[in-house]
Design a protein around this nucleic acid. Sequence first.
DNA 1: TTGTAAGCGTTATCAT
DNA 2: ATGATAACGCTTACAA
Lengths: 350, 350
Amino acid sequence: MSERRPGIADVARAAGVSASTASVVFSGKAPVSQATRGRVLSAAAELGYTGPDPRAASLRRGRSGIVGVLFMEPLRTAFLDPVKTAMMDGLTEGVAALGAGLLLLHDDATGNGDLLTSAPIDAVVVINSSDAIGEALALLRARGVPIVVIEGDAAAGVPRIGLNDREAQRLAAAHLAQLGHRHVVVLALPPRRDRARDWLDADDEIRFDVTRDRLAGARDLFPDAAAFAVEENSIDEGVRAGRALLSSRERPTAVIAQSDLLAAGVIRAAEDAGLRVPEDVSVTGFDGVRVDGLDGYELTTLVQPAFEKGRAAGAAVARMLAGEEAASITFTCTFREGTTTAPVRIPSVG
Amino acid sequence: MSERRPGIADVARAAGVSASTASVVFSGKAPVSQATRGRVLSAAAELGYTGPDPRAASLRRGRSGIVGVLFMEPLRTAFLDPVKTAMMDGLTEGVAALGAGLLLLHDDATGNGDLLTSAPIDAVVVINSSDAIGEALALLRARGVPIVVIEGDAAAGVPRIGLNDREAQRLAAAHLAQLGHRHVVVLALPPRRDRARDWLDADDEIRFDVTRDRLAGARDLFPDAAAFAVEENSIDEGVRAGRALLSSRERPTAVIAQSDLLAAGVIRAAEDAGLRVPEDVSVTGFDGVRVDGLDGYELTTLVQPAFEKGRAAGAAVARMLAGEEAASITFTCTFREGTTTAPVRIPSVG
DNA sequence: TTGTAAGCGTTATCAT
DNA sequence: ATGATAACGCTTACAA
């Protein structure tokens, strides 16, 4: 008695039409008379047919309607970052235009090499790639899967959605310079995976280009600025780093943080150390996201169009799927002056 | 010249074997001699064949290897919550055992009704469902898609992964009672969607069962405790609510927050108001997650196995896919005393 | 250990 | 507007 689920052929038969006609009723790809349409639909309802099996449709169409999102880190840390979640929202919207959904992939341990090969994905968006991605990228290209990269080293021919990080960061640096700051320290994002929290040496290899470019932008104004790199983009890391930065005897008058989360951490650390922001120390961030828990301050920062970046990636995917060329895009950040920067205080003459 | 991509049949032909043998070489579902195996593999390499087309395999097997995760809110707010991201990590691991990946779905505006019907998903995990999900659930059941619910109103016959919220919250309340607290206020999660931040009336409808159960647990000890509900689970909401709670003339001696994020916000608000935690006001949280930016306090809270919950949901999906019955599971929270609760201060006798 | 054969459930094309 | 036909690319009994 275990009936197998009805297929479109069953529906067609019950409605007295051909399978192709029934198919068209569901896809809407061709005109159908009201009469037949009605008969097909009620036959479907009768049989409990809920529409074409997506698996079969995928095969026939050569499209699954699924776009992979490949992260270089565990989801937990990726989603800790408001920029990434905003991007995900944008990406969701971008691929929704395609009628597609997002499949989570991460280049990290168990079973994911598998998914990369075995998941029915039409395209992949890579988030914040680094060299570590080489293998995965090669796999995907061999499969002929279109790839778009957001913030990272795109291989040749891979469209990249990025920011004018260097120029943007330079704006914040210029702002501080104009306020009279001379002793500035950069609080940097991780330079590469698995690198311990520490000062950045001149010969430290910086593999993440966001880190590299923002640092370059800061040093365009402050060539000698020291840089301290965290292990992870979070408020707590900012607090820890902030403690280190602010307790040194040669305390900087300003901190250029490479993210708003880090900036929030620095501010917290400053408060804890009895320093006032911006009176005793100025702090700039980067991203322009709402930082949960930074109530009371308006961060001086660079506002990046995170949502737009995601949506643009979705659009690029759509173009590639349509067989067109998708160009790389560089978005522009806008400088926003907040309440966390102020003119440097002239040391009172002893 | 536009060659179509090679299929397994091409590989088989080139290797001088049958398609089924070639198939088995890739799936490993049956023994193959080293010799043929080698020939097939090199033929594949030769032709640039990267393995079976997942779309075709899906159809044939009747499985896509994709599990949908259905959120009731935009990703941005869902992922703001560390509990949800930990759960996602667990879920990822849980379905990885199945060789499956996670497809993001949200019951929210554009095109998602579509995905629910048109995405090739083998099962769906619903996060924090409320009644709003009714329609989506019905759709999925009609399609015959197995469903598992995490924290929410499961329809009859749908396995649910949940917590002993009421009993757990009661522990924290008892802890406060034992410390001598009598005037306690509950800081509650949203009672339903789109409900403004405000005090909870007796006749307020509470649709999210987490909110309802934790409130019940608190009132088991403090039947008359007032409750203030936020709009969203975040530190900032906690700060805002905290300001309201702590500035009232009849200031409570303790606040039972229904999440760690809210608790963190209350603590922040207390600090801002010049109150010390726990000396002037005790605060308890719920979740036991690391709260970014709450450096310095160890929250008294209920630790919930968020990761485990996700993994259990994955396991339940696996069972259902294997045709077995999957039972509902209730996880247990453990009470953890931190530094944010202390004996109530006896008002000095005037 | 390998091969044969029969689909899996659709949809695109072309003809009517 | 509708129907007949032929794939889409693979997997899995079953037979040899």
